[in-house]
Computed example of a mutant assay.
Amino acid sequence: MQEIMVLATIIAPIIVGLVELIKRSVALKRNFVPLIALLVGLVVGITATPFTTLDIVYRLWAGVFAGLSATGLFELVNQRTGYTKGADEDE
């Protein structure tokens, strides 16, 4: 478990940056941002193969933990409206 948490701590800033890049380039509904972070976390966890000797299941768990911590677990149940990229201003 310690190795999973160490890997999650290392990849969390990468996920934050990638999610922020996605939010600024694509108009998404705000309630989809945690799901995007979770998916990005899974992808980054899988691609961390050259940097760790963990099995793929443990890397996926680290990606899930890092993805959820990147946006905040509370946002999954929080009702959010609107879009991430200026789409609200056009309406």
Rank of each mutant, 00 (worst) to 15 (best):
I22C: 08
L73W: 15
Q79E: 13
A37R: 02
V64N: 01
G67V: 09
I14S: 09
I4S: 00
E89I: 12
I22H: 03
V33Y: 03
L73M: 13
T52W: 03
G41C: 06
F74W: 10
T81P: 00
L60D: 01
F51Y: 14
R80M: 12
V33I: 13
K29D: 05
L76D: 03
E75N: 14
D90G: 02
A48K: 02
E75C: 02
A62M: 11
T81V: 11
V64Q: 02
Y83G: 04
T71E: 15
V6P: 00
P50E: 05
K85E: 10
V57K: 12
L7H: 08
L60F: 15
W61S: 00
L21N: 05
G67M: 11
V16D: 03
A12Q: 15
V44P: 00
V77T: 14
I10R: 13
N31F: 14
V6D: 14
F32L: 14
L38M: 13
P13M: 10
E75R: 15
A27D: 10
V44Q: 05
V57A: 14
P50K: 05
I46G: 01
R59Q: 12
L35E: 01
M1V: 06
L35I: 12
L42F: 09
I36C: 04
R30F: 03
Q2S: 14
T49A: 12
Q2G: 07
V19G: 00
G82L: 09
G82V: 11
T9E: 12
I11F: 08
L68I: 15
F65I: 15
K23M: 12
R80K: 15
V40G: 00
L73R: 07
G41Y: 07
T71W: 03
K29P: 00
S25H: 06
